[in-house]
Amino acid sequence: MSGTGRTEDGRGRLGSMLSGLAVAVGCVLFLGGFAWAAVVYRPYTVPTESMTPTVNAGDRVLAQRVDGAEVRRGDVVVFTDPAWGDMPMVKRVVGIGGDKIACCEKDGRLTVNGIPIEEPYLQTAGLASSNDFTAKVPQGQLFLLGDDRRVSLDSRVHLEDRGQGSVPRSAVTARVDAVAWPLGSMIGRPRAFAALPGGVSSAGPLKLQLGAVVGGVVLILVGAGYGPVAARSGRSKRNKQGKVPAGVR
């Protein structure tokens, strides 16, 4: 009986150790994921409807802190520029230094260096702009458009400026990766720009960070629940083994 009791006690202690380990690892993942995201991402509130339907006015977005040199065509970026009002704005990069941007070709699409670009994210499907335009993007600059080309005050408005409506890469402070509220959706990289030199930017670490947070929560809940269950199971087995059969007295 004493040997069996020690075995059951050992199982109980093992269960408690596993429970504590799961909770500890879960806390590390949960807190680490949050801390990592806080360092890499910044929240912004989108001020206008110019990026509808990708993001709407009032949406809270998560934008990865990046250097302007990392920006690629197709990225949705946060930037500030005195010529645009010197307040944080959100637009999509459609051209980089050296690109020739033109609109619209016979099917209503935007062209970059003569290549038609499919833009499924546009509010007005099949029409890249309500007005025709051309621009040559200076080196070190970015050409930016909104996804709702009917209302967006973007590079087209500033075409007569010295930089052909573009802004310097240094004006970019972050790249939008997801809508946090109210949609809770990721913002992907458009495939159409991938065929152009330089391709598109790689995905940010947000999914990995969310995975760490969710995994941490699961481990904490499982670990916290397993300890008491294992302890009750051990006590139940000991109680059953300690009972004296009715016929033996």
Results as ranks from 00 to 15, higher is better:
S50I: 14
V76E: 01
G10M: 14
G234P: 08
L21G: 06
S130F: 00
R11I: 14
V76G: 01
G97W: 15
P190G: 09
I115C: 15
V39D: 13
D59A: 05
T124K: 08
V25G: 02
R232Y: 13
P116K: 07
Q64S: 06
Y121P: 04
G247S: 05
G184R: 04
A171R: 13
A171N: 02
L221W: 00
D67F: 05
V76Q: 00
D161I: 08
V112P: 04
A24R: 13
D107C: 03
K243S: 15
D9E: 05
P205W: 12
T124S: 10
R249D: 06
R150T: 09
D132H: 06
L144Y: 10
R232M: 10
V167D: 00
T134Q: 06
C104E: 08
L31R: 14
A125T: 13
L14C: 11
L18P: 08
M87Y: 11
A212Y: 00
R6D: 09
S130E: 04
G68H: 07
K237L: 07
S170H: 03
G97I: 11
L122A: 14
D107N: 03
F79P: 02
P82M: 09
L127P: 06
M89D: 04
G3H: 02
N56R: 14
R11H: 13
S16P: 12
E119W: 11
G5H: 09
A135R: 02
S19R: 06
A63N: 01
S233T: 11
A57C: 06
A246N: 14
V94R: 07
R232N: 07
N239D: 08
G188M: 08
G225N: 01
L29Q: 15
D132C: 12
R11D: 06
G204P: 12
D148A: 09
A231C: 04
S236E: 05
D148N: 09
E8D: 07
T111L: 06
V66Q: 01
T173G: 12
V218G: 05
C27T: 12
E118Q: 04
